[in-house]
């Protein structure tokens, strides 16, 4: 049976992990490769690297990082942040990334989704969508949730699916950082209206939240950062709990 996936997310700036990494047993928690290996060994199913650096050196640094991760980590990983062209994606995939995640660049130029899926296949195109519920309507936002668009979450998700996205990574800005659980109503609706996998993001605080997002939110994967980085939740414990509650996981 296809397992539900647990996906730690690492924010990367200038080739180093930033914010909230506090692993007691790592020599250098700022080293994304060491952290990635640690997660792979403890049962993470997949990793996401989100590059938030804004320097001119960023592309070369990111490519080197991707290569180092691919050389040392034996589980799949996705790279996101600032990707806006076929060339960007080509060099990341050539260096060992399995998937790329695009967000603002897809909103600005939706045709990018078609171009990427035609050239590289849908399986490596993740469209990340940040949305906020305003007066009962889920509105897509850009720049980490700061800038609202005219787009409705469900319409936009449907559109990118039709354009060839292989997965949706949905972050609820209402839930992100709250540690109050994932946005399961919106996730369930996405899962019902679309026929591609949905990754839940934003709101993880305890193990029950993961159970709920797989059961009620019908998510295919769940992404979190700080609960894993601060070892508030250990992935082996989380997987045991999920299994106990009848959710298929890879142990």
């Amino acid at each position: 049976m296809l397992a539900k996936r647990i996906v730690p997310c690492l924010d990367i700036k200038n080739g180093r992990t930033v914010k909230g990494v506090n692993f007691v047993d790592l020599r250098d928690a700022g080293d994304p490769v060491e952290l990635a290996k640690k997660y792979a060994e403890t049962g993470a199913d997949e990793l996401v690297f989100l590059d938030i650096s804004a320097t001119e050196e960023r592309r070369r640094t990111l490519v080197n990082l991707v290569r180092d991760v691919a050389a040392q980590v034996n589980i799949p990983f996705t790279v996101g942040g600032g990707i806006s062209s076929v060339e960007d994606v080509d060099i990341l995939l050539q260096n060992g990334a399995d998937k790329v995640s695009i967000n603002s660049s897809a909103v600005k130029r939706p045709q990018l989704v078609n171009e990427l899926s035609q050239k590289f296949g849908s399986q490596c195109v993740v469209v990340a969508i940040d949305a906020k519920k305003i007066d009962g309507e889920w509105i897509v936002h850009l720049v980490g949730g700061k800038v609202p668009t005219e787009l409705n979450l469900f319409d936009w998700a449907k559109e990118v699916e039709e354009r060839g996205a292989g997965e949706i990574l949905f972050t609820s800005m209402n839930n992100d950082g709250t540690k109050d659980g994932f946005a399961n109503d919106a996730l369930a609706r996405l899962s019902e209206e679309l026929n591609i996998p949905i990754i839940a993001s934003g709101g993880a605080g305890n193990m029950q939240h993961f159970v709920d997002t797989f059961k009620d939110g019908k998510a295919d994967a769940a992404l979190a950062a700080s609960v894993f980085h601060f070892q508030e939740i250990e992935i082996p414990d989380l997987k045991e709990e999920l299994k106990k509650q009848g959710i298929p996981v890879r142990l």
Binding site: L2, R5, D45, G166, N195, I196, D220
Partner: peptide, 13 residues
């Protein structure tokens, strides 16, 4: 067939 999500992405037995 579209009775399942396509593509299949993830870990299976």
């Amino acid at each position: 067939e579209n009775i399942v999500k396509v593509p299949q992405i993830g870990w299976n037995q």
